[in-house]
């Protein structure tokens, strides 16, 4: 290798990745790395923000004042986490406006699980327990992602999210301890949210479009299948502890592997919802667009006011 290339930005970047050093905003980075990060971080941010809706659906109907306060604090956290992530994406030169625009035009995605409806109060429990549970497995892994601002946002998010899963599980515990109607409500929610939660980890490693390159760049630290396995292993005993049944006939402890074996995800269902055929796809996006549109006069007023003060 020529002398000059050892000094090249690409070489320095590669060495940093190799040495587990963080890449920081002002560093040179390959275009692909930047694009890949913006895609992943903004998708993550949009998921936090769109995820406010299915839970917000029960905010005005929470069964007790304590639950209402907890739920509002949690939804507010999701918004805050969206903010941390947008903030990380902006260090890469993608403005919030551009990111939101990409969401509205369908160029940017958000977690498909939020296209499922929250039909009963138990769904709020299931989301906290399963959806946040799955998210946190992924986010803990991302604390060691190679891009500094993303890693730091993940550290803050993980610290704050520790109560999210617990409050969801506590809702399920309460239901499981309740009467037959409440237990049925809890089981029904688990039945509907279990498989979509497993889908949150994405396609099998072999079929994942961005996985391999992301792993090489250390943006992703663990594979989809490894993370999914981790989630299943930790969640099954939690369901058993409160007498709920995981809706998977193939689920069985494999002593040799030291893991649970579980059934195959219905990828047709996954693709069906991702491609727009979930119960709430249009509702979620329309809601976000509407709020953005309704707020336009407010943002105009702020800008006009600031200009007059300047």
């Amino acid at each position: 290798m020529a002398e000059a290339s050892l000094e090249s930005p690409q070489h320095r970047f590669d060495n940093r990745i190799e040495a587990e050093e963080k890449i920081e905003p002002k560093d040179w980075m390959p275009d692909g790395y930047r694009k890949n990060l913006i895609r992943q971080i903004s998708q993550h941010a949009h998921s936090e923000v769109i995820g406010m809706q299915p839970e917000g659906n029960w905010l005005t109907r929470a069964p007790t004042l304590k639950r209402k306060c907890i739920l509002l604090a949690k939804i507010q956290d999701e918004g805050g986490h969206g903010l941390y992530l947008y903030s990380a994406a902006e260090t890469l030169g993608a403005s919030r406006e551009e990111l939101v625009e990409a969401l509205h035009t369908g160029h940017a995605k958000y977690a498909s699980i939020f296209n499922y409806p929250t039909l009963t109060w138990a769904d709020i429990g299931a989301i906290g327990w399963l959806v946040d549970g799955a998210a946190i497995v992924n986010q803990i892994s991302l604390q060691s992602t190679s891009y500094g601002p993303y890693a730091r946002a993940m550290v803050r998010i993980c610290k704050e999210e520790s109560f999210h899963q617990r409050q969801g599980y506590e809702i399920m515990v309460k239901l499981a301890e309740g009467n037959a109607t409440q237990r049925a409500m809890a089981q029904d929610a688990l039945d509907r949210w279990w498989w979509p939660s497993l889908m949150m980890f994405g396609p099998h490693d072999a079929e994942s479009a961005h996985s391999a390159q992301s792993m090489r760049w250390k943006i992703k630290r663990q594979s989809n299948d490894d993370l999914r396995q981790k989630f299943v292993d930790q969640t099954v005993p939690q369901a058993e502890a409160i007498g709920l049944r995981i809706p998977d006939t193939k689920l069985v402890w494999n002593a040799a592997r030291g893991h649970y074996d579980f059934g195959e995800i219905d990828w047709n269902e996954f693709n069906r919802v991702v491609s727009g055929n979930g119960l709430c796809n249009r509702q979620r996006l329309d809601h976000h667009k509407q709020a953005h549109e309704d707020g336009e006069w407010v943002r105009d007023a702020l800008r006009a006011y600031a200009e007059k003060q300047a």
């Binding site: 903010l83 941390y84 990380a88 902006e90 803050r156 702020l302 800008r303 006011y305 600031a306």
Partner: peptide, 12 residues
């Protein structure tokens, strides 16, 4: 440093 946000003026 903890992150960033959008606002129109310092007060906000």
């Amino acid at each position: 440093h903890v992150g960033s946000l959008h606002a129109y003026d310092a007060e906000q």
